[in-house]
Amino acid sequence: MARVKFLCDVERCIDCSGCVVACKEGHHVPVGVNRRRVITLDQGKSGEKSISVSCMHCADAPCIAVCPVDAIYQRDDGIVLVNKKTCIGCGYCFMACPFGAPQFPKGNIFGARGAMDKCTFCAGGPEENFSTEEKRLYGQNRIAEGKVPLCAGMCATKALLAGDADVVADVYRERVFQRGSGVNAWGWSKAYGKE
C-alpha cells in the first residue's frame, strides 16, 4: 500500500488548535508534551498564516538515522514510531528533526529527559494492539482499528489531511485548482465578465 502522509492546508488553517487537543485528549498526552502544535506566522499582520505541525513521518527520516539505540523505526505504511522501552532519551532525534517533533516528558534523574514521545499517526507502538501497555505508553491505536488519525478527523476546517499520500495529494491539488491558481485564475467566468 502507499505510504501515509500529513498535509496541512495553510489557506484553511484557522489556528483553532482542534488538532492539538484532539491528540492530547485521545492519547492522554501529559501537559508539556505536544505531539502536534499550531504555528502562526505574521500574527496580527496582513498575510497571517497558520500551520499545524507534528512528526511528518518522513520517508528518509533523520531521526531514524541518528538514533544511537535504534529505538525509532518505520513501518511499511510509512508511519515512523518509537519504542519507548529502547529509547534512552538522549535527544539526538530532536536535534536531527527539521520539525522539532520529538517531545520529551520529564524524567527522574537530574532533570534527565524521559523516553521520547511523538506523533504516532494514531498507530500506537510496538506493543500488542489495544493492549493496556500500548495505551499507557503510546495512546490509541486507531490505524489498527481502520480509523483515521484524530487530528485530521477533527480538524475544524479540514485543513489537516492525513492518509494515503496519493489521496492527500489529490485532495490538495483539487483545492489549489479550485482556488484559482494557474490557469483557473483567469477562467471562463472572468473572461466573459460573468460574476
Binding site: 499550531v38 502562526t40 500574527q43
Partner: peptide, 12 residues
C-alpha cells in the same frame, strides 16, 4: 499558543 509557537519555530 500562537505567540509561543511563533517564538518557538525559530527555536524548534
Amino acid at each position: 499558543s500562537a505567540d509561543y509557537y511563533q517564538a518557538l519555530i525559530a527555536e524548534v
